[in-house]
Structure formats: structure tokens, C-alpha cells
Design a protein around this nucleic acid. Structure first.
Lengths: 130, 130
DNA sequence: GCGACATATTGACATCCTTCGATGAATCGA
DNA sequence: TCGATTCATCGAAGGATGTCAATATGTCGC
């Protein structure tokens, strides 16, 4: 029920959509399923999971440290002290990043090494904006 | 807070043990000083704020719809029905996106038009990974 | 001014998230 | 085998978040 009256579109070249409503998506064929023009709910959930993992300052620092490390990988013992949080908390955050597909985990002896997944952030951004 | 002073901080990164110790920090001067090699706390907070705004499936769909719309802009009345949420909720989400710098808001008559800020996601991603 | 419309704000509530300490599981050196 | 080390999991506390109904604010047409 989003019916507009005439709205002054700035460019007003051909006056598309000026007369009536701004092409609401109600059963709109151009948008596909008739719901939205952008991502569907399932894809949006998938993209949001990646970004939600990056929505915490601690996880941003963790991933940034791993990506900026000379070897491209760090263990939890390297990460705990810089962020100033307890080891279980860091382990929890790393699990979030791993489940989001942003890092990979490799157990090497007693240490668990994490490595940034290249292209993961870019893929999510491209899925979001095209 | 931060009462983990009793933690065995025995220079975790430098690898006290010789044999299979993590060899990460040897070539990174700024990494062994007790701080981190990646983003500092302030910058991480700034980056995380952008990604947190994208950490919700509804907001992902909203921004995706706006970016994919023919005119590059949509009003709240266009967004409410596709996402299937109430108008106050959509307005709340749009405020989140605007405060994160991901969309701009322009009041035109009775309608508030939102437009995606180009490069906002890419800038955050670059700040995160270099 | 008045009614109708579009949007923002408020207050409330349920749910999720971050953090910790305590504990368990697996690995290495002696 | 035993003790030390590294990491993950569990359970709980406190705060943050998403959602709605009700209401307020602002705009347009008459």
C-alpha cells in the first residue's frame, strides 16, 4: 500500500515513476519473486552472518592482526594478550570468525593456528551491492 | 575488569620453548610490544560499527534493495512491505544504516529517500585487511 | 485550520551477545 | 606415566539488540 502522489524527481528527465507510485514491489515482475528487488531472505541471512562476525571490535582486531601478521597466521596465545581479554573469550571470538568463513583453523601440535580466508569479505560485499 | 593480571603472560608470542614454539613475532617489531599489529582499538571500533550495521539480515536486504533499485533510492514506504516488518522497525533499521554511514537520508516532501553511500563497505573492508 | 498521510520516537519485552571463571580434552617434554 | 601447556566447552551475569503498539512530528491537499 505504498501509493505515492506525484513526487518531484530531481532529474525529471522522462518523469518515470513521477505520476504515481515509485514502482512498489507488490507483485512486481521486474523484481522477481514479488518480494524484493535485492537479496532474498536466505541470501541476506548468509551475507549478514559474515558481517555480524565483523560487527564486534574485538573480532575486527583479531582478524586484522592475523591478516597483518608476517606469517599470515597466528595462534590463540598470540591473540589473547593484545586484545586484553581472557582466553575463553578469544577462543569464542575465533569460533565466530571461523563459522562465518572468515578464518580457517589448523591444529598444529598444541597450538591452533588461524589464517584469514582471502576474498571472504569481498565476496560478501559483492553479494550485498552487486 | 581486566583482572587477569595473574595470567601467565610469559611472553606468549616470543615462544619461550624452543622446539615447536610459534615463530610469528620475530620479524614484527611493533607486535611484541604488548600491543597489536593490526588496527588499534579506536580504528577497530570504527570499522566494527559499519559491519555491525550490516550484521542484520533485514538491514542487508534494505541496503541491497536500495542499491539495486533503478533510481538508486527508495523511501520507507517502499521498504516496509518487502521486508514484512512494521514501519517503526524499518525506520529504526534505516537509522542504523544512516548512522553507520552506509546510506544518506534526504527528506523530500512527506517521504524520506535513502541512497546507498558508494564505497562505504569497501572502505571498511580495506581498513580491515589493508 | 483540518484531516490524511509518511516518518520518527518512545516504552516495553523477549532474545541474543559478550564476558568471565571453572572445567574438560588433547598434546608435548621429562 | 606425570605434570605442564594450549585450547575448547559449559554455565552464568549483565548489557545490547530487534520488534511491536502507541504516540509524536512534520507535510500535503482542501
Amino acid at each position: 500500500m505504498s501509493q505515492h502522489a506525484m513526487l518531484p524527481v530531481v532529474s525529471a528527465g522522462s518523469g518515470a515513476g513521477a505520476a504515481a507510485a515509485p514502482k512498489s514491489a507488490s507483485a512486481a515482475p521486474a523484481c522477481g519473486t514479488g518480494l524484493d528487488c535485492g537479496l532474498d531472505a536466505v541470501e541476506a541471512e548468509r551475507v549478514a552472518r559474515v558481517f555480524k562476525a565483523l560487527g564486534d571490535p574485538t573480532r575486527v582486531r583479531l582478524l586484522s592482526m592475523i591478516a597483518a601478521s608476517p606469517a599470515g597466521e597466528l595462534c590463540v596465545c598470540d591473540l589473547t594478550e593484545p586484545v586484553g581479554l581472557s582466553q575463553p573469550t578469544v577462543s569464542h571470538h575465533m569460533k565466530q570468525l571461523a563459522e562465518a568463513g572468515l578464518v580457517t583453523r589448523e591444529q598444529r601440535g598444541r597450538w591452533a593456528y588461524f589464517r584469514a580466508v582471502d576474498g571472504a569479505v569481498g565476496d560478501a560485499a559483492r553479494a550485498l551491492l552487486g
